[in-house]
Computed example of a mutant assay.
Amino acid sequence: MLETNFGRHAKKKRIEWIDIAKALGIVAVVVGHAYPAKDTFYETTYWWHMPLFFLIGGFFIKSLKVQKYTVPQFIQRKVWPLLRDYLLAGATIILINFFVEQRNVHYTLGYFGRLLYGGTELNGYTSAFWFMTVYILALIVVTFIITFIPNKMLQFLIVGTLFLLGTSYKDAQSAFGFPMPWNADVTLMAAFYMWIGYFSFKYLKRLVQSRWLLALSIATASGLIVAQNLGMIDEVIYMKSHQITNSWFAMFVPLIFTFSVLAISYWLQFTPLKHFLAIVGKHTMIIMFSHKAVFFVLEKINFDAWTILSLVGITLPIVAAIIGKKMQQHWRFARQSTTTS
């Protein structure tokens, strides 16, 4: 259920350093949600972890002409699997909430309604689900842009303008009087990061191997973190809640950090850590969908240390996914045996 297009990028031959980068990103997401203090570590983690996922998503986008898809085929083969996983995962988490929190039917039906509306209406067990709807919308926007506007410079001007427009106001509630369905306005930001991933992937495959660029990007990112800690700057990038202090900062700084993470990931593939990180990277979506539910269950039994929450929030979904896959394989084998006997 949870192996979406996002995680299926290289079913024929996976690229290890991309899986490792996704692992670092999802660890940052889980830790960010578990970490109790809104200090420099917390703020600077939010500068890059969600932009990283949108940027990586752009690595494997192709125009409809290259894919030889009509628009209905694109919706059926690329969009629908993501939406299906969003709905199935959401329904599962809401049912878990129903039993764990002993909710009444009225509350649970309302929760299903909020799942359909998405965005900032989702909190608690499903608060991270906003990512998938924004990802779907950004995928559609970027695919259509690169299909119908062949000029790369014009594409950049469009996504750059959309980004500046999308970060020019406080939030949807203030601008429109209501939160946008699916966090649709955040798509204006996400589409920019995704297009950057689409455009830069062929160059990044070489650039991540450069030790000089790795050192430069890490030094620049470290300098920005120190500046934030010392109060020389005071910037936040919270995509879901649309808290953006500076549009230009939000446009360029996440790119510096994401390149650092990608370059670090490239070199991590030559270390013993690669095996563990690759496993985490292959299960990013089930971790994204379920870690907040894991947190709430643990907190009910008084396990509330952020380190424990983070560790279990990462490992338990992976174990569940592996067990689920083994059971599917067993049932498939059993059906085949019954058919052939």
Rank of each mutant, 00 (worst) to 15 (best):
K274I: 13
L309A: 01
L162A: 04
D171T: 03
E235I: 06
A28Q: 11
K12G: 09
L87W: 02
T220E: 08
W212T: 15
P150M: 04
F59G: 09
F112L: 15
V27K: 07
Q329C: 11
E235Q: 15
T70R: 09
F59E: 05
W267M: 11
F252E: 03
L298R: 03
K78E: 10
N104Q: 08
T284N: 09
A138F: 12
F54R: 00
H242M: 14
Y35R: 08
L116W: 15
G160Q: 09
F259T: 00
G25E: 06
G231R: 04
N183D: 12
Q67W: 11
F252K: 07
E43P: 02
F129D: 01
V141K: 08
L2K: 00
D234Y: 03
L139W: 10
P36F: 13
L207G: 05
L255I: 09
P254Q: 04
I56P: 05
K325C: 13
L87I: 15
L273Q: 06
F295A: 02
I308L: 13
L188N: 05
V226F: 03
F156H: 04
F303L: 12
G231V: 03
T284L: 11
G58V: 13
S265L: 10
I233S: 01
R8F: 15
S260L: 07
V141G: 02
Q73Y: 04
Y111N: 01
L137I: 14
V71A: 13
G223C: 10
I279N: 00
L154C: 11
P179N: 14
T40K: 05
D304L: 07
W306T: 07
G110N: 11
I225T: 13
F99A: 06
K22C: 05
R114M: 04
T284V: 15
S247V: 01
L154Y: 06
V29L: 07
Q173Y: 14
M251P: 08
A221T: 08
V66E: 15
A293F: 03
P72G: 12
L224Y: 02
I256W: 12
Y125F: 15
I136V: 10
G324Q: 09
T258I: 03
H283T: 14
T339C: 11
I146D: 01
K62L: 08
L109F: 13
H33E: 06
F333S: 14
K326N: 15
Q173M: 13
Y203P: 00
Y203D: 10
W212V: 15
N104T: 10
P36M: 11
E299T: 02
I26M: 08
F176M: 14
E235K: 10
Y35A: 06
P72R: 10
I286K: 08
F178W: 15
A250V: 11
G223S: 11
S247C: 09
V280W: 05
M180Q: 13
Y238S: 07
R14Q: 12
W248H: 12
